[in-house]
Amino acid sequence: MRKNMSVHRALEHLPLLVKTCNLIEDVLSEELYQAIEQLIRNSQSELTPDLRWQTVRWDVCANFEYKEIWFAPSIWNINQTDSSHLNIEQCYAYFKLTIQNHNERAISIDDDFANNGNRLPTVNFFNHANGFVSIQFHLNKSMIKNIGDKETHYSVLSNWGKRRNQLIQQYNELAYHGFKLSEMGSFWYLPIPVLDGCQVASDFDRKYFDQSLDPIRDALKTIYPVLDIFDLIQKQAKLYK
């Protein structure tokens, strides 16, 4: 009976639910992701006063919607420039702010954009029932050069995947700083707590996101003390092409 009542109420309020979801994904989402990208670019630390972040923001729509922000220190770029735009084809490693599925096995982790089966990515900033926001550290498989025929392609990718996992898994000290190793052992990630919806709404009305982004700001602060470890990983990744 309770189940029937909940379905009845959901259908009764369906028009409002649809409007709410559209408002979040069509209106709030763009402003929120822009603010987060700018926050990353402006992020600084006394530990690395000369560090500059480069970013690229993805908004991918296919049979699912997917939003991500990829970022890396400018010194990781092979051809260092003053641009704030990240050229992913020039970096052996990068961070990504993304929506992560609770069940990693449902995600194709070797794809650049994993299908998390969630058409409402922005909602995950405020509710972790279907997924959660995290900052992940990845090694860039696209830096593999001179892949020949199809058989060689799969052989090289398989070999690279094993080396990547071995390299990533060497640095267990990252766990002491709040990072978690993915279930498949292929990347490290830092979960981000839910954002305060009331604060986000208030900042949205003021057209300036400040305290509402503190969980993301705190996550960036967590990266700085161990950035030398991530830097060492990406330097070692350069040895394998």
Rank of each mutant, 00 (worst) to 15 (best):
L232V: 08
F125R: 02
A106V: 08
F137R: 01
P191W: 04
Q236Y: 05
V56N: 13
I109N: 13
N22Y: 07
K19L: 08
S155I: 00
I69A: 02
Q100A: 09
V123D: 09
L195M: 12
I233Q: 07
L190H: 05
K207Q: 15
L232A: 14
R206Y: 05
D112N: 14
P215R: 05
Y33M: 09
Y92L: 01
V27L: 09
Q166S: 11
N4L: 09
P191Q: 03
D196P: 03
Q170V: 00
L190G: 04
N165F: 00
V123N: 11
Q170I: 01
N115H: 12
Q166M: 06
P121I: 04
E46M: 02
A93C: 12
K221E: 15
N118K: 03
L120V: 10
L213R: 06
V200C: 14
V18P: 04
I168V: 15
E89P: 00
H128V: 03
I99T: 15
I233R: 05
N124M: 05
R164Y: 01
I216G: 07
E12Y: 11
T48K: 09
P15F: 06
L174M: 07
E12Q: 12
N172Q: 15
R9Q: 11
Y224W: 14
I36S: 04
N79D: 15
V7C: 07
Q100G: 02
